[in-house]
Structure formats: C-alpha cells, structure tokens
C-alpha cells in the first residue's frame, strides 16, 4: 500500500520562506515584520503566505519546537506489529492517544513485522510507561519502545527540492 500526497506547488517566495524560516524566528515585538524584512517581503505578505502554507499542509506547524526532555518529559519511538486484517482498528486506537505525536506506516525490504512506528511525547518520564500500558490495553498488541540511548549530531534543515513555479 502506497499512499502519498503529491509535492506541493510552491513559488519562489514560498520556497524562500520554507528554507529560511525553519529556525531562528525572532523573539521581539514585531517578529513577522523582522523576518519579512530579511526575506524582502512585507509583514502582511509573510503572514498571508504562512497561513496559506499551513492551509495547504506544506507546513505542519509554525512556532516553537519543544525539547520536552529539558522539562522532565520524554519523547520515545515505539513500534507495533499490526496484523493487516486489524489495521484500521489499531490505527484509530493508537492515533486517539494525545501522547502519540507522530505515527507512520513503514514497510521494509526484509519484511520486518514492525509496521507501525510512532513517537510518544509525555510531560513526565513516567508517562511513557503509562502510555505504553494504555496503548497495549487498547490494541491488545505488544508495544516495543525504542528509547534513544544517544543522539548523534545532525544538521536539521531540509531545503525545498526541485524547481520553483514561476
């Protein structure tokens, strides 16, 4: 099963916004005006384009990205082996939990049984075990948590690919 939205149609200004504003948005009285100036556009144009990028789901969010570990919380990757016949029920049950921040269907060349991969985000470290327990109760399946033991440094930004629409 492959189901994907097509790449969005972005003009040159949209692309500059997505590429330039993945971080470093200022904390000041008129931050959109400051960011717009560095992009060479007006504040109201930036606000309208950000709203449009969100509406078109080019951006999933615009705002602060929190590292909940720094406030005593936790992010943990976890996997389920979901039987195909039970996919819809398990998908609904898992996604209903607010602790599930992201969830992806994955398939591998080696046919790993782990086909549902989600990230749990909880306000306390203890919340992870509680969320795992609740998801196991709701799905009847064993949740396999893969907590990070170490994160290796990476450059986080992804530039928009391909040609801009003129």
């Amino acid at each position: 099963m492959r189901e994907r939205p097509p790449a969005a149609e972005l003009d040159a200004v949209d692309r500059r916004i997505v590429d330039a504003l993945q971080g470093g948005f200022p904390v000041c009285e008129r931050p959109y005006a400051a960011a717009a100036e560095s992009l060479g556009i007006a504040e109201e144009e930036l606000l309208a384009r950000l709203q449009s990028l969100l509406d078109r789901k080019v951006l999933t969010r615009f705002g602060p990205m929190f590292q909940i570990e720094r406030m005593g919380g936790a992010f943990v990757l976890a996997a389920l082996a979901v039987p195909e016949a039970d996919w819809a029920r398990v998908n609904d049950a898992v996604n209903a939990f607010p602790e599930v921040a992201h969830n992806y269907r994955r398939e591998s060349d080696l046919n790993t049984p782990f086909n549902m991969w989600f990230v749990l985000a909880t306000e306390t470290r203890e919340g992870i075990a509680e969320a795992v327990r609740k998801i196991e109760a709701a799905t009847g399946l064993v949740v396999h948590p893969f907590p990070k033991l170490k994160e290796y440094f990476v450059e986080m930004k992804l530039a928009v690919r391909g040609e801009a629409l003129s």
């Binding site: 904390v27 990205m65 929190f66």
Partner: peptide, 27 residues
C-alpha cells in the same frame, strides 16, 4: 518574550520556525 528567550537558551525550545511536511517539499 523573556520566558521564550530563557527557554531557547536552556534548550527547552529547540528552535522557533516552520515545520515542513517532508512530502510536500519534495522529500
């Protein structure tokens, strides 16, 4: 603004900005 700056300094906020949908930007 003081709290936002303090959370940025402590790393509670990793960064402020756009979170792209990877698919929509061509990945």
């Amino acid at each position: 603004m003081a709290r936002m700056n303090a959370m940025l300094e402590r790393g509670t906020i990793r960064r402020i900005g756009a979170v792209p949908n990877h698919y929509a930007i061509g990945y």
